[in-house]
Design a protein around this nucleic acid. Structure first.
Lengths: 142, 142
DNA sequence: GGCAAAGTGGGGAAAAGTGGGGAGTTTTGT
DNA sequence: ACAAAACTCCCCACTTTTCCCCACTTTGCC
């Protein structure tokens, strides 16, 4: 169960410390890959296996399916959490998500999402103006 | 079953004592998150699990659904009740609900709602003059 | 009044976050 | 082919934050 929003930093060596509260639900290994909205996603192994299996089952004939597989599998990196609780973010993924320095990690229950600080702030301001929309959707859940 | 309204304080370390009468129905753990109306909500674990499961089932492709998940999951914090019956309210949530010092906790049957004193008073004065009108709108529900 | 429970406050130990050195390996360029 | 540069990985060290424990005050109840 991943919960909460955390601001921290990626150091000059491309290392990213996973906040302790998110780390607890993560094993020793995890998979980091791209998300369509220009951020990164970190899956624990069991969740990743489920996702990978679903992706593999898509029709190989469908071009969109293949493109999606390239996107997810091709952008993925298996990460080990080191003794300090950090993972290494490959340069290609740092580049994709425009991450350099300040980072925001968000627990999303089943997985972790990683944004560059700048992109996150931009997203926040967009959503905050629309909080009534969120409230309306919440109502629908009950 | 959470009932009643309680005024108390949040100390300088961000700790909030849950009133004993609300604490009884709460286990050792609970989840605190945001509400769209600028206050906080504290769910006991069984109630939270129900909400979290519904939220996770929403389509990941729908942007509104993702915004809602960011709002709820990203704003959530798993709280353990310490030996003094207190929880820690993360700075980000204190900030969101404008809480510093005086607090009002309200039992809402299935969950607990936490307001800053100032926002609560404002709400009270707004609603009190209009309670007949609000009740009238609910006639169809009962 | 006296006792017990609840609410409030603070100090110190432990953990988390951050940064950097250096050995070993791979890549790059001449 | 060889040297230089870049990248990994494994340590260690320092600062900040968090957590746990203890103590005092206040409230409610017998």
């Amino acid at each position: 169960m991943f919960l909460g929003t955390f601001e921290h930093t990626l150091d000059a060596k491309g290392r990213l410390a996973i906040p302790a509260k998110l780390r607890n639900s993560l094993g020793e290994k995890a998979v980091l890959t791209r998300s369509p909205d220009r951020c990164l996603v970190l899956y624990p192994m069991d969740e990743w296996n489920r996702l990978a299996q679903q992706l593999s089952q898509l029709s190989q004939v469908d071009r969109n399916a293949r493109d999606l597989q390239y996107f997810i599998f091709g952008g993925a990196s298996e990460c080990e959490i080191d003794a300090q609780g950090r993972i290494i973010v490959p340069a290609m993924l740092r580049n994709y998500a425009s991450i350099d320095g300040d980072v925001v990690s968000v627990g999303m229950n089943t997985h972790i999402v990683i944004w560059s600080q700048a992109a996150w702030v931009e997203r926040e301001t967009r959503v905050n103006g629309d909080i009534d929309n969120i409230a309306a959707q919440l109502v629908g859940l009950f």
